[in-house]
């Protein structure tokens, strides 16, 4: 059996090599408007919501596209949002899952100081790990916010009519959604991403292991940052196999780590031409031709 070695590190190195590259394959139709909290503060205003970009969303080349897709939607829907920009720091999730409670709490308390300093009330995250950590683990350390995942924001925007989708480019396409553990089992959010995707007029298919029975992509618990322990298969290969068995056009994800893992899996099976791995936000942005 062929086992991919060092695939997380490969991705990380890849990201670093391309850090200076500014090419984006998608032509940006309208310039992104990304105000920071400091900008709002200077104007004496406050935004509706803070967009917590996360480390992947800020630095990983693939995840940056998801971040941009979210911003495109926010701009399109005229949502008054702000990012923390250089004041944002890692939520501390990987440290906490790895057992480094010290480092986690240092990160958390520094972030809480920044967030409370701006009197932040509501946060949307582009990553289920940041979502879970800030929503559930920051309150004990003095950070109390209403935190939603970006698929929940998309659901709100669709429900309130601030964005609409008329089928678009995914009409009739076969899409299967891979539940991120920290959105699904971790926080019981199963319907938001699905109810958003219903608007695509696509054929939504469920893997056998979905929702509360969903199989992890293999990146959680800080595995993203280390070699997998010795075994006979990579978790992402097991999961991608299951997704590919449905012959989908798109594997939809809601987490930058899952995105990396599933993309690697699809490449492993040489299916990257036929099967795209896209975040729910990218699906919505692309369907609306943003």
């Amino acid at each position: 059996m062929k086992v991919i070695h060092n695939h997380h590190s490969t991705i990380i190195i890849h990201t670093m090599e391309n850090q200076t590259s500014t090419t984006d394959t998608q032509t940006t139709k309208q310039p992104l408007v990304v105000p920071t909290m400091a900008d709002y503060m200077a104007k004496g205003e406050s935004p509706e919501i803070v967009f917590w970009v996360g480390c992947s969303g800020s630095f990983d080349d693939r995840a940056k596209k998801i971040t941009k897709a979210i911003v495109k939607i926010l701009n399109h829907a005229n949502v008054k949002f702000a990012v923390l920009g250089v004041e944002e720091s890692c939520s501390g999730d990987p440290a906490k899952r790895a057992g480094n409670e010290f480092l986690f709490q240092m990160q958390a308390m520094n972030n809480i100081t920044v967030l409370n300093g701006y009197d932040v009330k509501k946060i949307v995250t582009g990553c289920p790990h940041c979502f879970n950590t800030i929503k559930n683990e920051y309150p004990a350390l003095g950070g109390h916010y209403e935190v939603i995942h970006h698929t929940q924001l998309l659901q709100d925007l669709l429900n309130s009519g601030r964005i609409t989708i008329e089928g678009g480019s995914f009409k009739g396409k076969k899409i299967t959604f891979h539940d991120p553990c920290y959105l699904g089992r971790g926080n019981d959010v199963y319907e938001a991403p699905r109810s958003v995707m219903v608007n695509l007029d696509a054929e939504l298919m469920e893997m056998k292991r979905s929702k509360s029975k969903g199989l992890c992509c293999g990146a959680g618990g800080a595995q993203m940052f280390k070699e997998a322990e010795k075994g006979n298969k990579e978790v992402n290969i097991e999961r991608t196999e299951e997704a590919l068995a449905l012959n989908p056009d798109v594997i939809a994800v809601g987490c930058p780590f899952c995105n990396t893992m599933m993309t690697d899996g699809v490449k492993h099976f040489n299916k990257e031409q036929e099967v795209k791995v896209l975040d729910v936000a990218e699906l919505i942005a692309q369907a609306n031709d943003l």
Binding site: I12, T15, M16, Q19, V34, T36, V53, C55, S58, F59, D60, V83, G85, V86, E88, S89, C90, P94, M224, F225
Partner: peptide
């Protein structure tokens, strides 16, 4: 950040 990137490059 869990990777070696400068915090000033976040945006």
């Amino acid at each position: 950040a869990p990777w070696q990137f400068s915090p000033s490059d976040r945006l």
